[in-house]
Amino acid sequence: MSWNWQQPEWPHFTYDEQALVTPEKQFLLRSGEFIGAYRHISEDDRDMLRIELIGNEALKTSAIEGEILNRDSLQSSLRRQFGLGDDDRHIPAKERGIAEMMVTLYQTFAEPLDTAQLFEWHKMVMAGERHIEAIGGYRTHAEPMQIVSGSVGKSKVHFEAPPSSQVPGEMARFIDWFNDTSPGGKSPLPPLTRSGLVHIYFESIHPFEDGNGRIGRALSEKALAQGIGQPSLISLAHTIERSRKQYYDMLELNSRDFDVTRWLTFFADKTLEAQQITLARANFYIAKARFYDRAGDQLNERQAKVIARMFREGIDGFKGGLSAENYISITQTSRATATRDLHELVEMGALLRTGERRYTRYWLNIETGQKTHL
């Protein structure tokens, strides 16, 4: 059986619109919930949330491709680019490049797509690479662009993209389609549907030597942001990375099939899951503000230091909860003082206590809209 781009119907994918009606409604509803929550977050915490969400997406979209980046370097680069810090540490090329792409995506989501933007993204994603011939341009090599797994002699071709000679024409058509299906375009599509189609269409062309997955997911996020009229800050790569095998299986399945309903419903499910994570993180910052309104002026210096550290750990908190040993390590105080401080924090309702004796652990007493230890 031929690849999808070799078939007469290409690139007109088909799908069951009814299967996406409910997910599309849920997406818009949750987008509204996030926008509402975001407005209740202080300006400083918005900056922190934006860095956290964008940084996590950059880490996860790279991890999907098997590339592990340094979180601290990445976040330092993001703070620089948003004008939020003057950290002068050296930022490795890979962390700097993916951070630049994510910030550009955030700042220019509403602009129409064009070749120049794609080429700039590719330069950013490929920063520091030495094995790529065409950086900042479409692939030009004569050999087939294939996705292959397995050892030599036992390899399996999961997909073969159009030859390099066809890429400029295919991408010109893709860019026109992307802009025509935007909210202000000639043939607008619902945001979830459009975002899923963007990804399968772009990945089917596979226009670059490398970096297609990261750029394809960025395009999907651009489509989602255009659909709601503002940066989505959605944790899409986060949820895809957790279902990485299924993600690749679904892409392979639709590399030959023009009915992409199964792909679109899978993609919609991952997007809605991503929205829940994003909303939970926003609610965490709202809960933080309420916590300090309620208990901030009751904390002594040691307690304030530990509580601030617990909040810096983020929505997942200390792994396994805060222990007395953690408290002693952070404050450099005695065990007797730590025991007294922790007892006071529980009494005032700042912390919740679980377990007994050496298994005693402490958790921030905040309501985030989801059942989780923080």
Rank of each mutant, 00 (worst) to 15 (best):
Q117A: 15
P112H: 06
T108L: 03
M124I: 02
A134T: 14
G136M: 14
E129T: 07
R130S: 07
E120P: 11
T108C: 07
A134G: 09
A116K: 10
K123N: 14
E129A: 01
K123S: 02
W121K: 04
E133A: 02
M124N: 09
L118D: 00
F119K: 15
T115H: 11
M126C: 12
W121A: 05
H131N: 11
G128S: 04
F109S: 04
K123F: 06
I132G: 09
T108I: 04
M124C: 10
A110S: 10
M126V: 03
H131D: 09
G137P: 06
M126N: 01
M124F: 15
T115C: 03
G137S: 11
T115F: 07
A134Y: 15
E120Y: 04
T108Y: 06
L118P: 14
G136C: 09
A116V: 08
K123G: 13
D114T: 15
P112W: 11
G128Q: 08
A134F: 12
K123D: 10
I132D: 09
E111T: 08
L113K: 15
T115P: 05
A127H: 08
Q117H: 09
A127F: 04
T108R: 03
A116Y: 09
T108V: 12
F109D: 00
W121R: 01
G128M: 08
M124R: 12
D114E: 01
V125C: 03
R130D: 05
H141Y: 15
H141T: 12
F119M: 09
R130A: 00
M126F: 01
A134L: 04
I135G: 01
A134N: 14
H131A: 08
W121E: 00
A127R: 07
T108N: 10
R139N: 02
I135Y: 12
M126W: 01
A127W: 04
